[in-house]
Amino acid sequence: MIIKQLSVFLENKAGRLTELTGILGNAGINMTALSIADTSEFGIIRVVVSDPEKALQILKEHNFSVNLTDVVCLMTENQPGALARALELLSAERISIEYMYAFSIGERAFIIMKTEDINRTIELLRKNNIELLKADELYNM
């Protein structure tokens, strides 16, 4: 259930993101989901890819600061209130969310999140019948 997300440090410099995506593309690595957190000085790109270990290796070789981060991916109905219900469960248990990003396809919504305690999060969501995506399902989406 734990998904290995690639997190990469990027300076705010022209062409860096193009370079990064080019490197992954040339290595035949597909990106399933991506988000960028930015400040005035630097950004962190968070991306779920088809082969996280290989991507990690390749980016290191290209001198990127990069690591793998454990995240989970929830799947809910693409309907008003669905995300709120999932988040209420976490709030009630006082599990903080570090960050999240989401996308939807048709009737389904996918929410990738990092919380302060990934194992407790998984346990809690499962107990409440919230569907969690397996790592391979997301990598190969």
């Binding site: 997300q5 997190s7 440090f9 400040t39 630097f42 990069v66 690591n67 960050y99």
Partner: peptide, 18 residues
């Protein structure tokens, strides 16, 4: 320079480090 071992995927932690 931010090395791999100190790099955090959280902006907050990088800002704290700065």
């Amino acid at each position: 320079e931010v090395g791999d071992q100190f790099f955090s995927d959280e902006i907050r932690k990088l800002e704290q480090l700065t």
